Computed example of a mutant assay.
Amino acid sequence: MSRHVLITGVAGGLGGAIAERFAAAGDRITGVDTREEPLRERLDAIAAAHGVATDAVTADLSGPDAGEVVGRAWRRSGPVDVLVNAAGIWPATPLLEMTAPMWDHVLGINTRAPMLTTVALARLAVAEGRPASVVNLASGAAIRARPGAAHYSTSKAALEMLTRSCAVELGAAGIRVNAVSPGFVAGSSQEVNPITEEYAAAVSGNPLGRIGQPDDVAAAVFFLASPEAAWTTGAVLRVDGGSSAGNPALPVHWTEPTSVQSPR
């Protein structure tokens, strides 16, 4: 049965891949982004490839009215069954140069907007007695700080707790809320969130030995929104090639083999 899936950040690499995955299953897609032309181009390509209905909603999610995109999508294309909060920014700002507006802008898009869209969906779904599923895009930065990313790491750590809080409060209404936490993924938007080759080389190592692809993340999002995950809520699924588990490139900490000594 076709679902109506609302996805933010569809003009970006991850958001576009997620939209593609749901469309391949026959779901109707409403895509949201600030960049109207690339948003419409991506949705037109998805509609042509999969024969599904798509709708573009151009909106700035940084403000206090971010949740209004849910109502617009609901009115234009019917009740929203799945919400994917994929929009996000990760600027590099050294802590000694941080200002309140810089901090608030990142937290506004990465944390406040998912809260507002989730609440907006929940209100509509509860009013009509409908179940729904929300999947947020977190990040490995939520558990690993790095230079220049205090605002970003904080926003994603907060998003993980927001995911759990929403799951606790909305579960009784039949609304599941989960998150996918990607590691370093190739194909993210360089236009909006550029990264250097040096940074990519430094963070791309993981136990599985390859860089993640947008389809890896899209598959995890699709699973969490599916009936196969019907008893899963408040979860954070780390899709990072194992990088959060440890670093296989580290040398053995002692040059010679050692054995465990019995205590005397």
Rank of each mutant, 00 (worst) to 15 (best):
M1Q: 13
G9F: 10
V10K: 01
A11S: 11
G12Q: 01
G13Y: 02
G16C: 00
A17G: 05
D27V: 12
R35F: 10
E37T: 15
L39I: 13
L39S: 04
L39R: 02
D44H: 14
A45R: 11
A47P: 10
G51H: 07
S62G: 12
G63F: 06
G67H: 00
E68M: 14
G71K: 03
R72Q: 12
R75N: 02
V80I: 06
V82S: 01
A86Q: 08
A87P: 02
I89T: 04
I89S: 00
P91Q: 10
L96K: 12
H105D: 13
V106A: 02
V106N: 03
L107C: 09
R112W: 08
A113H: 00
M115Y: 15
M115I: 06
M115K: 11
M115P: 07
A122Y: 07
A125M: 07
V126Q: 09
A127G: 04
G129R: 06
P131R: 14
A132R: 02
A132C: 08
V135R: 00
N136C: 14
N136G: 13
L137D: 01
A138R: 01
S139V: 07
G140F: 06
P147Y: 12
A150M: 03
T154Y: 11
T154G: 15
T154V: 11
S155M: 05
S155Y: 00
S155E: 02
A157M: 07
E160P: 00
L162P: 05
T163Q: 05
R164E: 05
S165V: 12
L170C: 05
L170V: 11
A172L: 08
N178A: 10
S181T: 00
S181N: 01
G183E: 08
F184P: 03
F184G: 03
G187V: 14
I195C: 06
T196H: 07
E198S: 08
Y199D: 09
A201Y: 08
A201S: 11
A202I: 10
A202F: 08
N206P: 05
G212N: 05
Q213E: 09
Q213Y: 09
Q213H: 07
A218P: 13
F223L: 12
L224Q: 04
A225M: 05
E228W: 13
A229H: 02
T233F: 07
T233H: 06
G234K: 02
L237E: 02
D240N: 08
G241D: 15
G241Q: 14
G241H: 15
G242D: 04
S243F: 01
A245S: 07
A249H: 11
A249E: 03
T255D: 03
E256F: 13
V260C: 02
Q261W: 11
P263K: 11
P263Q: 12
